[in-house]
């Protein structure tokens, strides 16, 4: 042991000899505190059990009424029932969600200045796309559906508030992605039928999943045209920009550049198909 300074030794000695003060705490106090502690434990355990039950209940699959569920391989097992859909990347703007009956999507933040105040979802049933308007801030899904969240149409982020939502495929598996030709044909049919919203959704999916395919070139030009027709100059501008970035040596590049340079898009910068507003 270290050789102590006498003053230090005296302090240690004093510390050892300190008398305890008269205790005011009694066994009854200890018992009450014990009961409180047990009460807290019970409360915490009960709360945890209730939460587990709630999670189990909310993730219980509901039999779809209007369509068969997707293949099990496309689901992410154990997904939580509440999802915040991240701000969608332009080339990954189209996201597929599988929603169970009763799920709702809640708009989390207002759309950007160039977005419509009322967005639209394309709810797909099989190969058919049905556009559903957002009423107020909430879209209610009446039946199990794949919801195609397209930020072209909504430009915002959403959160599943209740019900069960599973990513059918956050990055959809190859088996579920239609071929470029299929998407192009789907877009073509929609354009002929005057369904711009669905046409845009298919075109964006085509551009996203088959970015350098031959149909993607035409898809970008169609997108630019359709967006301009819908008054969304900034998005049209970005479609042109993406075309030039991806296909600079294409025969149509000079005319696209002219359109790009003369377009009055609000955005000065784009991230993929998405205009950056600042």
């Amino acid at each position: 042991m270290t050789e102590r300074h006498p003053q230090f030794e005296a302090l240690v000695d004093r510390a050892r000899r300190q008398p305890a003060p008269p205790l005011t705490v009694t066994h009854a106090d200890v018992r009450r505190a014990s009961v409180r502690r047990i009460g807290w434990k019970v409360a915490v355990v009960s709360l945890a059990a209730a939460l587990l039950l709630a999670i189990a209940w909310s993730s219980k699959p509901v039999a779809p009424r209007e369509e068969a569920p997707p293949a099990a391989a496309d689901r992410v097992p154990g997904s939580v029932s509440m999802h915040v859909i991240p701000d969608l990347e332009p080339v990954a703007s189209a996201e597929l969600l599988r929603l169970e009956r009763g799920a709702t999507l809640q708009r989390l933040e207002p759309g950007r200045p160039d977005s419509p105040t009322e967005g639209t979802f394309v709810v797909r049933t099989g190969d058919q796309g049905i556009a559903l308007p957002i009423r107020g801030r909430v879209l209610e899904v009446g039946a199990a559906s794949e919801v195609f969240v397209d930020d072209t149409l909504t430009q915002t982020t959403f959160e599943v508030r209740k019900g069960t939502a599973r990513w059918a495929s956050a990055a959809p598996s190859r088996e579920r992605i239609p071929a470029a030709a299929t998407l192009a044909a789907r877009a073509e049919r929609a354009m002929i039928a005057g369904e711009r919203v669905e046409a845009i959704a298919s075109l964006r999916q085509l551009v996203r999943h088959h970015p350098f395919s031959a149909p993607a070139k035409g898809a970008l030009l169609d997108l630019a045209r359709l967006e301009a027709q819908m008054g969304r100059e900034a998005r049209s501008h970005c479609a042109h920009a993406l075309f030039l970035a991806r296909f600079p040596r294409d025969a149509r590049a000079p005319s696209v550049r002219t359109a790009y340079e003369t377009s009055r898009g609000e955005a000065t910068k784009c991230r993929g198909l998405r205009p950056m507003t600042r």
Binding site: P21, V30, A33
Partner: peptide, 20 residues
């Protein structure tokens, strides 16, 4: 109580610590 007092040197801790 004595142990708490020796370790802390603070009488105000003793009751609470003994209970704990």
């Amino acid at each position: 109580a004595r142990q708490v007092m020796r370790m802390t040197g603070d009488a105000s801790w003793v009751d609470d610590m003994v209970q704990d």
